[in-house]
Each structure stands twice: as C-alpha cells, then as structure tokens.
Design a protein around this nucleic acid. Structure first.
Lengths: 154, 154
DNA sequence: CAGAAATACTCAGTGCCCTGATTAATTCGG
DNA sequence: CCGAATTAATCAGGGCACTGAGTATTTCTG
C-alpha cells in the first residue's frame, strides 16, 4: 500500500501549526509563561473567583491538565487558590497582583506575536482561517457527548 | 486591562483543533498507535531505511521527541533500528512486517476519520483550510533560521 | 434523614514536545 | 595525519494532554 500524503491530513497540519506557534511564543512572548498558562490568567481576569473545573472548561483543558497548570501558576505566585466555604469540593481562583501584572505585560506581547504569526494571510483570509478552524474544532468537540440533543432531553 | 478574546488567538485555536483531533483519533483509529507514531510508519513506507533524524524532519519532530517515538515503536516490534555500517552515528530504520500491516490497517481508518473530522466543511473550504494552515505553519517554521537566504549563502 | 448518585479534585500512568548538555563518530583544515 | 568543527544520537529536565481510579463533599431521592 502506498504511503499517505500527510499534508492533506488535518491532524498532522494541526500539530505542525501548534508547534510553529509554540516556537514563536517562546521567542516573542515568554519562556517562563506558556500559552495555556496565559489562557488561564486571561480567563481569571475576565471572571475572577472561578473554580478550577470551570477554568478548565473555558480554556479547553481536562481536569488533570488544568490542575497541573494551576499548581504551577500558584507555585509562582501568580494566583491564589482557596477552598470554597460554600462548597468544600471546589477550589476558587483569583489572580495575585503579580499575576495581573504578568497578564498585562503578556497581552501586549501576544498581540505582537499574533501579527507576525498571521502575517502570511490577508485580513479576509484571517477571518476565514478562524472560522474554519473553529467550526471543525467545535464539531469534533460536539461528538464527545453524542445522542442527547437528538431527542428531547429528559 | 480587559481580557483578550482567545477565539481570535491562532495559538489557542490550534491547540483546540489538535485536541479535538486527538479525541477523534482515539475513538476512530487506534488507542495504541498515536497520530505521530502513524506519521513515522507512513514515512518509512515511503522511504525505508531512513535515519532517525531525517524521519524526524519529515514528520516535524525534534531529535528528542523522534527518539522517544521510535523507541516505543521499536519496543512494540513495528520497526527495526540498526546502526549504519557506513556511518556509525546514524540509526537506520525499517518497518517490520507487523509494522507494515499496522500501517495498512490504520491508513484505512485514518481516511474514514478525516472524513468525519472535516465533515463540517465543503470541499472548497477544505482546500482553503489546508492552504491557510500550511502557509501559516510554513512561514513560522521559516522564521527559525533567519537571514541566510536573504543574501547569497556562503 | 440515610443511602445512592453526582461532583470537584487528586493521583498514577502513558505519551508528546521542547531545550541544553553530553557522548560517539565523522569530516574538515592546516 | 591530527586536532577542530560538525553531526547523530542520548540523557536530564520541564511542561502539556489524556484516561482510569480513588477521595471528599454535596445533592438527590426514597
């Protein structure tokens, strides 16, 4: 059997895209704070006091991964984690001053990096780029919990 | 400072796309063989006897990662790894019969999965999708070794 | 209200992904 | 020809990402 052409395999392209981004992030944004870590900080700027699971949901990380990311951010003093007195299962998260400062600094750099990253595309193409990727990712995520919406939810 | 909108951040989208793909791969292709592992098998079908570094280059993995992936494939008996008698630094790689058989089986399943993954897009949109991602990834990879091609290489 | 079910988090295990340092082999330059 | 530079692979270390199993807490239900 002949070998497949990986340049038409979306999974392979997605991986290469992410690697390219990883590299550029390291060079232009930060070597200490990673892109997923920034996503967590960003979520807590918009919604302070969220619990761990919900933050994971916002940024698209599962329970285990978000726990690791948060533990690293907490260890570096960028956020505080306290038990919810109303519900002892939850951990509530708030940025520290240092965390807010870091978020501000990286927001600027991230915008610059995105400009460079997307430089090969025209403005119209960028819109299409976002739209296509979002549609594919959303659809695939929707496949996780099948059925249910097909008939009336009970 | 306001929080950024992550849905317009290509890095975040790339990560979500890859995760969605990971999930679908697990469900529809294989729980044992991962997508990067398949990419390695696929490369060795096209070019048997390649050395480790070149395989990494083909599939877009750095020296350390490709070493791990190959060691796993070798441990499972899907490929053989032998020192190049002509150049003692290199390890030359060949698929075993089992490796070739696995590649054939997964090629079929991968094609089916790609259909499902890309189902939200029309045929035209798929072409654009590939083109845009490839251009962004290629450009970012080109930033790694700057200068050189700008003037005559010496 | 007590037991069952659900929920938030943690832990162990596997695999991908990178950098920087080290080792072994080959090639290049004087 | 021999030391220096280059190259392929390995190792140590940090971080992301998932699953399955386990613990603690809360909520639901008979």
């Amino acid at each position: 059997m002949a070998a497949a052409d990986l340049t038409t395999h979306p999974g392979h392209l997605a991986r290469r895209l992410q690697q390219a981004h990883y590299l550029l992030w390291n060079a232009m944004v930060s070597e200490e704070i990673t892109s997923p870590q920034f996503a967590v900080l960003n979520t807590l700027v918009a919604e302070p006091g969220l619990d761990q699971r919900t933050v994971g949901e916002r940024v698209g990380l599962d329970r285990s991964t978000i726990a690791e990311v948060i533990s690293r951010l907490s260890r570096r003093g960028l956020l505080d984690k306290v038990r919810d007195p109303q519900d002892g299962r939850r951990s509530l998260l708030h940025l520290t001053d240092e965390g807010a400062r870091t978020h501000r600094k990286l927001t600027v750099r991230t915008a610059r990096m995105n400009q460079v990253f997307l430089a090969p595309l025209t403005a119209d193409e960028r819109t299409v780029f976002f739209d296509l990727i979002r549609r594919v990712a959303d659809a695939a995520e929707g496949l996780r919990n099948p059925e249910e919406p097909l008939v009336a939810p009970r």
